[in-house]
């Protein structure tokens, strides 16, 4: 029990960092109705960009901002491949993701891993401080960042532009009939999403003390897990947009706490990714099964009426 309590702050910190990534996934997966696989690459791009800039002596906040911009470029490329080249969204994301692997290695000067020491650089978050009750504890800063981001996104998706992006995802036919340029909105949404994912990667790399070219592998699945956990637990009570975003962040925290729990219960670390994939697959399938069962019941009712 004590070991769990000791591990809890670390799990919460990581969950909050991944929560930002999950918000990015929410924007594409739920708002735009696009499954965007760019994120597996852009997460590492954010980490690589931020760490290399910090190592070069740049202020970590500025490095974070640049990581955001670089992530947006990645989303832009996927958006162009999808809307201007007619490539299906999933494939467009995979193509960008693949090319990002090479780009990330370039950014990290051809090394698969680049360390950044919290002793040498003024990092924003670090696992080093996770235990202490100080302002350096990453949990404090991450909560503030999450609140700021949710506020800004709530505002943005309430503006004329933001509403038109939501309409694009909800019904692109209707959106075009109302004079909305659905292509440019999809690009913008993908940029915003990947910018946030890169920020998450930048914070994660600082937290871990290194950027790794493989740090984004399977990120999309973790992001989806957070989105789904948030929806399953809070979907019935959290109806407003900002609460939905909050639910996504809490979903990521829950994911990491549960992860910590099952690891302590003796689960092999190597089996983690499969476990995550299975859980996500089940929760994605549930609405489909529900519809099917409801349809069958309805069919039976109709049949008995006819008889």
């Amino acid at each position: 029990m004590t070991s769990l309590l000791n591990a809890l702050p670390g799990a919460v910190s990581q969950g909050l960092i991944w929560g930002i990534m999950a918000i990015g996934v929410y924007i594409t997966f739920r708002v735009l109705d696009i499954a965007d696989l760019t994120v597996d690459g852009s997460l590492a791009t954010g980490g690589a960009t931020c760490i290399m800039l910090i190592r070069a002596g740049l202020n970590p906040w500025v490095a974070l901002l640049i990581a955001f911009a670089v992530g947006m470029i990645a989303g832009f490329v996927t958006g162009i491949l999808h809307t201007k080249c007619g490539i299906p969204a999933i494939l467009a994301g995979i193509l960008t993701q693949l090319s990002l692997y090479s780009i990330n290695l370039r950014i990290m000067e051809s090394k698969a891993n680049q360390p950044v020491s919290v002793d040498k650089y003024p990092l924003l978050v670090s696992s080093r401080h996770v235990g202490g009750f100080t302002l350096k504890n990453p949990i404090f800063l991450m909560i503030i960042i999450a609140i700021v981001l949710i506020t800004v996104l709530y505002w943005f998706f309430g503006t004329e532009k933001g509403c038109s992006i939501r309409a694009t995802g909800a019904n692109s036919n209707m959106a075009r009939a109302q004079g909305i340029n659905t292509n440019s909105n999809k690009i913008l949404g993908l940029m915003l999403s990947n910018g946030l994912v890169a920020v998450s990667g930048a914070l994660l790399a600082q937290y871990q003390g290194s950027a790794d070219v493989n740090m984004g592998r399977g990120a999309i699945v973790i992001g989806l897990a957070a989105v789904i956990i948030g929806e399953v637990i809070f979907g019935k009570i959290f109806k407003q947009f900002w609460l939905t975003l909050l639910a996504v962040v809490i979903g990521a925290v829950i994911y990491y706490v549960v992860l910590q729990l099952v690891l302590m219960m003796g689960l092999n670390t190597n089996d983690l990714k499969m476990l995550t994939a299975v859980i996500v697959a089940i929760f994605l399938a549930i609405p489909f099964w529900k519809n099917k069962i409801a349809g069958k019941r309805l069919g039976k009712k109709e049949a008995s009426k006819d008889a």
Binding site: G158, T159, E160, K161, S164, G179, I180
Partner: peptide, 11 residues
């Protein structure tokens, strides 16, 4: 707002 530029004022 059909036919208008959609900006950052409230929707």
């Amino acid at each position: 707002r059909r036919g208008q530029r959609r900006g950052l004022s409230w929707g």
